[in-house]
């Protein structure tokens, strides 16, 4: 799937809008998918604030983000502009303590 420049720039600016940005289905209060809910639970347990983007509310973002990261599923977590992974990876990094370090270490 190709990505046009305006969409790429838009996604880039969303990803750069916060230190921790989660593309998910639904929002932090009401996740609309079990995998998104799991990542929210993990982030909630580690940090007070982060940005979420509801892909269900914006089909350009929903399809674009998969091409942007070459990752075909949602949720997708970004830290300081870098793609971290989806639900399995976030869960594994949480269990190993790696995620806590990554989220709480200074930039």
């Amino acid at each position: 799937m190709s990505l046009d420049d305006p969409t790429r720039q838009r996604l880039q600016s969303i990803i750069d809008s916060g230190t921790v940005v989660l593309f998910m289905k639904g929002n932090r209060q009401m996740p609309q998918c079990g995998f998104s809910a799991q990542v929210v639970r993990i982030l909630d347990s580690l940090i007070p604030d982060y940005t979420t983007v509801d892909v269900l509310a914006d089909s350009e973002v929903r399809h674009g983000i998969k091409a942007y990261s070459s990752w075909p599923t949602i949720p997708q977590l970004y830290l300081r502009g870098e793609f971290v992974g989806g639900c399995d990876i976030v869960t594994e990094m949480y269990q190993s303590g790696e995620l806590r370090n990554a989220l709480t270490s200074p930039a």
């Binding site: 995998f35 070459s70 990752w71 075909p72 599923t73 971290v84 992974g85 989806g86 399995d88 990876i89």
Partner: peptide, 23 residues
């Protein structure tokens, strides 16, 4: 892990979004 999972998704590119909704 990210690289490993990308490899799996690449192999299953055809199935993702059709037969497979979530993996």
């Amino acid at each position: 892990l990210v690289e490993r999972q990308r490899l799996v998704y690449a192999v299953l590119a055809e199935e993702m979004g059709n037969d497979i909704h979530a993996l």
